[in-house]
């Protein structure tokens, strides 16, 4: 029993950066922009969050910096694709390469300056990132550890997902945003400010990705700087968007399932089942590939990618 609980808790924690990346990408694709720069935006968020936390010793400032860095990366992408109508794939891939590269350059620079050769966040911040403890609730057996003992990121991610779901399904602005992703001509003709909404969604989505990046360095790596800390999570997030059928609520459990796959290797008894670790490392990517194949074979109109995703919108197109 306690083994299962430990496994589930670890899966949720491992899935949380994916949740942020997925939500950010959903916001991009909902306005019709296939942004392959998730990995890059997460990297930017990671380095900005870490370095600001390292310097200021302030958790809130670190989070804001992570959001801002991701948003800034997304803003570049938005300017290039929304305003200058560049190809989404090329722009996104470039953002990824740029984000990872810049992150590593900054990391090397700081590592070179440190005396010990390692960089670690101050104790004060790591304290704040610890699992929460709510008196009464957290101590309840089973439910307590399963629901009320996570670090603050987990709750923030779930709240963002629920807010996004409410926004898309129950507000007029959400309806307009969905219309943009499906058919920008229709939205424009109906009086929706297509370009403005695209900017807003892409930039905020990038910021959310940035927070996911900060998670990888602050929680997954315990506040110790390493290069390439995002390590391909951004790519899994892109696939998870499809797995979640572009719905924020599905992204919650989808990312936790993928989180479970990431930590599976630590929870399988090596004496009984002996498979190389490399197999487990490969698992999320393998499942991603399978899902992509299955999804492309399935044809349900309501669960498909927003119809205009990957295309640029120019009002006077003839």
């Amino acid at each position: 029993m306690s083994f299962m609980i430990r496994f589930i808790v670890a899966a949720v924690v491992a899935g949380t950066p994916l949740l942020f990346g997925t939500l950010g990408e959903i916001m991009n694709e909902r306005v019709g922009h296939l942004n392959l720069g998730v990995e890059g935006m997460m990297s930017l968020g990671a380095v900005a969050g870490f370095m600001v936390g390292y310097r200021t010793d302030n958790f809130a400032l670190a989070l804001i910096a992570a959001f801002a860095a991701g948003a800034l990366g997304a803003l570049i992408y938005a300017i290039v694709t929304v305003t200058f109508m560049a190809n989404h794939t090329v722009a996104g891939l470039t953002l990824t390469i740029f984000g990872i590269g810049l992150t590593n350059v900054i990391g090397f620079h700081y590592l070179g300056m440190s005396e010990s050769g390692t960089l670690k966040l101050p104790e004060h911040i790591t304290q704040q990132m610890r699992a929460v403890h709510i008196t009464g609730l957290s101590d309840v057996p089973v439910i307590g550890p399963l629901l009320f003992q996570y670090n603050p990121f987990v709750y923030v991610g779930i709240v963002i997902a629920v807010l996004l779901a409410l926004f898309y399904n129950f507000t007029k602005a959400g309806l307009n945003v969905r219309a943009i992703g499906e058919n920008p001509q229709a939205a424009d003709a109906a009086g929706v400010h297509v370009l403005a909404w695209k900017y807003v969604n892409i930039v905020i989505g990038g910021g959310i990705c940035g927070i996911g990046g900060a998670f990888t360095i602050m929680i997954t790596n315990g506040g110790v700087w390493i290069s390439d800390c995002v390590g391909g999570l951004g790519w899994i997030a892109v696939a998870l968007v499809i797995f979640a059928t572009w719905k924020p609520v599905n992204a919650i459990w989808g990312s936790f399932v993928f989180g479970a796959m990431r930590i599976l290797k630590y929870y399988v008894n090596k004496e009984i089942i002996h498979i190389p670790d490399a197999f487990y490392d490969m698992l999320p990517f393998l499942v991603t590939a399978v899902i992509l194949v299955l999804v492309s074979a399935r044809q349900v109109r309501d669960k498909a990618q927003p119809a205009a995703c990957g295309t640029n919108y120019f009002r006077e197109d003839r």
């Binding site: 129950f170 507000t171 007029k172 309806l175 307009n176 969905r178 219309a179 499906e182 058919n183 001509q185 229709a186 939205a187 003709a189 109906a190 009086g191 929706v192 109109r301 309501d302 498909a304 119809a307």
Partner: peptide, 20 residues
């Protein structure tokens, strides 16, 4: 200029002013 996956009513509501 209609969004295929929306209902007729949602299509009518797109871009209308004021509260939903």
């Amino acid at each position: 200029k209609l969004v295929d996956v929306f209902s007729a009513m949602d299509n009518i509501a797109i871009g209308t002013k004021g509260k939903r």
